[in-house]
């Protein structure tokens, strides 16, 4: 591997990482709050992308309006899922998991007759490429980095600077104590679902113009997001960022040097090692 190739693949790795991080954020947030693995995250990512397809591409609305619409619509969907699935199950981790798996299967299977059999696309929002250190990178990909950054900062401010965020943190630390202090656990759980789903929708909405759209498009990003949050520590936002960067770089540099499959296998071996020797991940704390 030549030095030039290494630099190129590192740049690509960072752009990959910002995609991964976005996906992992909502997942880690929901885990931290409720200790649930949101298996539906990939399906929500897919729905977020399809909102862009219909509102922006088919409907002709401005991209950012469609982007916000996607987050709001799926945020509402998240709240409804909390009301109709999570709450009746009374927070049982395992039945919730099975219900989310069922929901995912349903959304994906129903996606084909609803959205059509053929892969869909959304035209680029930021066309063109820019040459960085001799490697062409599309502007739309470069734009993900600041957009992902903005979402991370927004989430940080929301959690740390607002009353709702404080309530969420309180529940994360001790559910009973928070309830005794007058925090409405149901409302906050609903909110966590809404924010988590909205973040998944945001990543789907950002990816729509870059990749293709099909009902199964969320599977691979979901898998990557799982790896990242295990790596970074379940429930940890800094962990998700670090984990995302590591995975993005592994996926790019190792894949460029050795091929895509060794990179994929390596990331899993890495995960198993991390879990065996530091089960809570790099930034995790004991549950």
């Amino acid at each position: 591997m030549t030095p030039a190739l290494f630099v190129q693949s590192a740049i690509i790795g960072v752009s990959l990482a910002s995609i991964y991080i976005l996906m992992a954020l909502g997942l880690t947030l929901m885990f931290g709050m409720m200790h649930i693995i949101n298996f539906a995250h990939g399906a929500v990512y897919m729905l977020g992308a399809f909102v862009i397809y219909y509102v922006f591409f088919q409907g002709g609305a401005p991209y950012f309006a469609a982007f916000v619409a996607s987050m709001i619509l799926l945020g509402i969907f998240g709240y409804l899922v909390e009301r109709s699935i999570y709450r009746p199950i009374k927070g049982g981790i395992e039945p919730t998991l099975v219900a989310l798996i069922a929901l995912t299967t349903f959304l994906q299977a129903a996606g084909y007759p609803v959205f059509g059999q053929l892969d869909k696309h959304v035209p680029p929002v930021f066309p063109g490429t820019r040459n960085i250190l001799g490697v062409g990178i599309s502007i739309e990909r470069l734009m993900i980095i600041p957009l992902a950054g903005a979402l991370v900062i927004g989430l940080y401010l929301f959690i740390n600077k607002t009353r709702l965020g404080a309530a969420m943190r309180a529940i994360e630390q001790d559910k009973e104590a928070a309830a005794l202090q007058g925090v409405n656990v149901h409302v906050v759980n609903g909110l966590a679902f809404a924010v988590g789903f909205a973040l998944a929708a945001a990543s789907g909405a950002l990816m729509a113009p870059i990749f293709k759209l099909d009902p199964m498009m969320g599977e691979q990003p979901l898998l990557k997001a799982f790896i990242i949050i295990i790596l970074g520590g379940l429930g940890s936002i800094p962990g998700a960022i670090l984990g995302g960067l590591m995975l993005g770089l592994i996926d790019s540099i190792i894949a460029t040097a050795l091929g895509a499959e060794p990179a994929f296998l390596l990331s899993f071996v890495f995960i198993i090692l991390v879990l065996l020797f530091k089960p809570t991940g790099l930034f995790g704390y004991a549950p």
Partner: peptide
């Protein structure tokens, strides 16, 4: 892999 969407590393 058939599920791959980011071909950049392979294309490099």
């Amino acid at each position: 892999e058939r599920t791959m969407t980011d071909f950049n590393p392979v294309l490099l």
